[in-house]
Write a protein that binds this DNA or RNA. Sequence first.
RNA 1: GCUCCCGUGGUGUAGUCCGGCCAAUCAUUCUGGCCUUUCGAGCCAGCUACACGGGUUCGAAUCCCGUCGGGAGCACCA
Length: 534
Amino acid sequence: MQKEGFSPKEIIPIVNSVIVKVNKIPLNKQIAELEKLAPELLKKEKKERDFTLPKLLNAEKGKVVTRFPPEPNGYLHIGHAKAAIVDHEYARIYDGKFILRFDDTNPENAQIEFYEAQKEDLRWLKIEWDEEFNTSDHLEEHYRLAEQLIKQDDAYICVCSTEEIKHGRFHGKECNCCGNTCGDSMDLWKDMLNSSVEGSILRLRGDITCDNTAMRDPTLFRIIDKPHPLHGDKYRVWPTYDFAGAVEDSISGVTHPFRTKEYELRDECYFKLLDLLKLRKPHLIEFARLSIEGMPVSKRKIKPLIENGSVSGYDDIRLPTLRGLKKRGILPEAIKQFVLEQGISKVESSVTFSLVAAANRKIIDPIAKRYFFVKDPVKLIVENAPEKIKEINFHPINKTLGSRTVKTGKTFFVQNSDMKELKVGDIFRLKGLYNVKIKEKNKDVLTEYADENLIPGSAKIQWTTDKFVEMSVFIPHFIYIDEKYNADSLERADGFAEEAVLKLKTDEIVQFERFGFVRIENIDDKITGFFAHK
RNA sequence: GCUCCCGUGGUGUAGUCCGGCCAAUCAUUCUGGCCUUUCGAGCCAGCUACACGGGUUCGAAUCCCGUCGGGAGCACCA
């Protein structure tokens, strides 16, 4: 508009006067007029939102490299899944490379079993990596770079106590070690590596008065005299996260490293280190941690529960670990969908589990077989019951799932809660079978056969015959409420399932009609269910 | 205390960089209806949001200043 010589200032008054005129016309005439002039403006079309991740800055097809850098110190949870999925997804979108890197530079944390366990978790998520390595395998290179920093006098050895260092950093005061020359530091560094000196650390010469406290001469290397799960006693000087993370991202060619936003303050340190080392600088991106309401992710909260037996282990269905989610019948595809829906914003938020459930339901509803499970069963007798051999489909729409055949007599079991809703004289339908009329409600419920025609609006409830299978379904609830462990977080629903569930195998996810989606597990020949969601 | 990040309906999220196409997206939840031999799915409708206060501008969710609220960091843990 301005290009054509008009300015908004000139046009706005004209527009305003026209609006006044148009508004004087009755609404229905306005609509009629618009219908003639531009009918397309009257339709409001629904926009579809796609859940692809936003474009990456400085990204070129074929040249994007991402990485997922877990510390092998536990099983992966939904938070890891977010990082891994985002990393993996970007590499895929840009035809790039995705690296799995174990950040195992603290022998006190790294544990041998978790290298493989985490890979299993990733494979279950259907995440494949193009390259895999351990940061601990690059230690010699880290040492070389450390020495480079010392030679440049950009780092120095500090032998002060933790307390002194803390104090100095807090008040922005240098310690005496800061005056160490590069010669001094190099000698002390060699001592760290080769002798049994204790307590020395290598510190970056940052800025002890910097507003960003992460820059107040952060620790780059420290001594940890503990055998490493992969390298044993070979090394005792280990890089900290600040050093190892920056260096590894750079030298392994990562172009777009992602991390959670609690590291944001360390960005400055990250880039300063790479500057001093004359290494390539990747494009760092931070996002908020992902947390699900009532399902804590932190080890601080989960570990005690495992140790005191409040939960069965890291695969407890109340936990947001990948193993826990798997156990309750959440599919990896649903987790991926859920994560991508959340995107990579920096807003700290707590998401309801129903978003996970919705994603999962969308996938399993069309393919999950339906079965009858009767919670808190009561006996139901049908007078004049015709003996039937009835074939009932496993799915209302998806006929390829087949059917089962049930032989019925006059004894059934139905849910106590359903019977409470009905009174003597009511007619309801044994779902898939026929109608019955309630005659008496005592300990058992006495009914009589009441025709087979469908009665619109009547209750249709699930049932079993007297050939039932006793089983329990475990239902998870919030494990933490207001920062407190919820002792009622695991509910057990006991009841009778129809005989056909005996043919189910471990890991099958079915729907118990009017109950919910349940993953089946055969434990010691006893069939058990784990509740996923409604 | 200091520094940094964040603030869009009940819950998430798009839009914020680069002001106008935003009487604000999509999902989920909830409510009502339709449909259905499930309380599931599907379909339709509805509710509810730019934290607050100033400023800049013809025009602000978007830019500036301030306030408030939430989070993070101030580790020899990542």
